[in-house]
Amino acid sequence: MQPGRFVALGDSFTEGVGDPNLHYPNGFRGWADRMARQLGRADRRWEYANFAIRSKVLDQIVEDQFDDALALAPTHISFYAGGNDLLSLRSDLEALMGRYEEALTRLTESGAHVLVFTAFDMRTTALLEPLRRRVLTFNDAVRDLASTHGATLLDHSLMREYDDRRLWAPDKIHMNRLGHKRMAAFVLRELGVPHTLKVRELDEWEPRGWRRAVRDEGRFLRTEVAPLVRRRLTGRSEGDHALPKWPEPIRPADGMKRLARERALARTELETSGRAGGIRRR
């Protein structure tokens, strides 16, 4: 495949939440950064940008990310959106998918190779069964729209490894480091790009006893579900003050950790000069 410019759009799935790494912007690495690094190894001319920010709903992703992303004339675009909309059980799913189709059409008409993803089927506590039904409906619609508009579909239902809870972060919503690495390998394989990612096989694991299962579910509800509900009720989100990880194209072959350090240093110098300027004006 000829080298080009890969631009990632979306929410926490694409920002890399669940795969913490302090050497990368926003403190996360994630599948998109891992994939970009492999593209750079395959051909150093590849460029990469990532606008994804956690907690963003579809309309925010379209409004805040699309113009800047399309202005970069990407050859490849990854687009994952709608997962956070599904968390609001009062949202109109049919209207959501109508807006999703409008967004997807805009991306495919740009001429870029567009990749879309189904949402993960979160088989967790029975209390979330209404959400799971919405996820299944959403996924059926994404499959249909991808086929209609000529987008490449990454369908998690074909990735049976993700039934294993060891690929998931404690919140059961985001992939952990192993899960993100696997996702990068899946996408690269779909694009026909060779990679050097070491995706190890998981050992057999013993099922939890019922006592441990009860404790784990209780901890999950207290530490993950309850805070999520509180944020929804107050209108706050974890992404309110986050910035895009890579808003300007980089060449991953130049070293993403080094580029992240240089970017952080430049931002610190800018903030310092701004504070100094404010002091002088007083």
Results as ranks from 00 to 15, higher is better:
1 M>F: 07
3 P>G: 14
12 S>K: 03
14 T>P: 01
17 V>S: 02
19 D>M: 03
20 P>W: 01
25 P>N: 10
27 G>Q: 07
35 M>S: 12
39 L>M: 11
41 R>V: 13
45 R>V: 10
47 E>S: 14
48 Y>L: 13
50 N>Q: 10
50 N>R: 12
51 F>D: 02
54 R>C: 03
56 K>E: 15
57 V>L: 13
58 L>T: 05
59 D>K: 12
62 V>W: 00
62 V>Q: 00
64 D>W: 03
69 A>R: 00
70 L>V: 06
70 L>I: 04
72 L>C: 08
76 H>A: 06
79 F>K: 00
89 L>W: 03
90 R>I: 08
91 S>N: 13
93 L>C: 05
93 L>Q: 10
96 L>H: 00
99 R>D: 10
100 Y>W: 09
100 Y>K: 03
101 E>V: 08
105 T>D: 06
106 R>N: 01
106 R>Y: 00
108 T>K: 01
109 E>L: 08
112 A>W: 00
113 H>V: 09
115 L>Y: 06
115 L>D: 01
119 A>G: 08
124 T>F: 14
127 L>N: 06
129 E>D: 14
130 P>G: 04
131 L>V: 04
132 R>S: 12
134 R>G: 07
142 V>I: 14
145 L>F: 08
148 T>N: 11
150 G>F: 07
155 D>W: 01
155 D>M: 02
159 M>Q: 05
159 M>K: 02
164 D>E: 09
165 R>S: 11
165 R>F: 04
165 R>H: 08
165 R>N: 08
167 L>T: 02
169 A>V: 03
171 D>L: 12
172 K>R: 14
175 M>S: 05
179 G>Q: 04
182 R>M: 12
192 G>V: 09
192 G>H: 04
193 V>E: 04
195 H>M: 04
198 K>H: 13
200 R>W: 09
201 E>Q: 15
203 D>W: 05
205 W>P: 02
206 E>D: 15
210 W>K: 05
212 R>G: 05
219 R>I: 15
219 R>E: 10
221 L>R: 05
223 T>I: 04
224 E>C: 14
228 L>Y: 05
228 L>G: 04
231 R>F: 12
235 G>T: 07
237 S>Y: 03
238 E>G: 15
238 E>R: 09
239 G>M: 05
239 G>C: 14
244 P>T: 09
244 P>F: 07
244 P>Q: 09
246 W>F: 10
247 P>Y: 10
248 E>M: 11
249 P>R: 11
250 I>L: 10
251 R>S: 08
253 A>L: 07
255 G>K: 02
258 R>P: 02
259 L>G: 07
262 E>W: 03
262 E>V: 14
264 A>K: 08
266 A>M: 12
269 E>N: 14
269 E>C: 12
270 L>I: 07
274 G>I: 05
274 G>W: 13
277 G>F: 07
282 R>H: 11
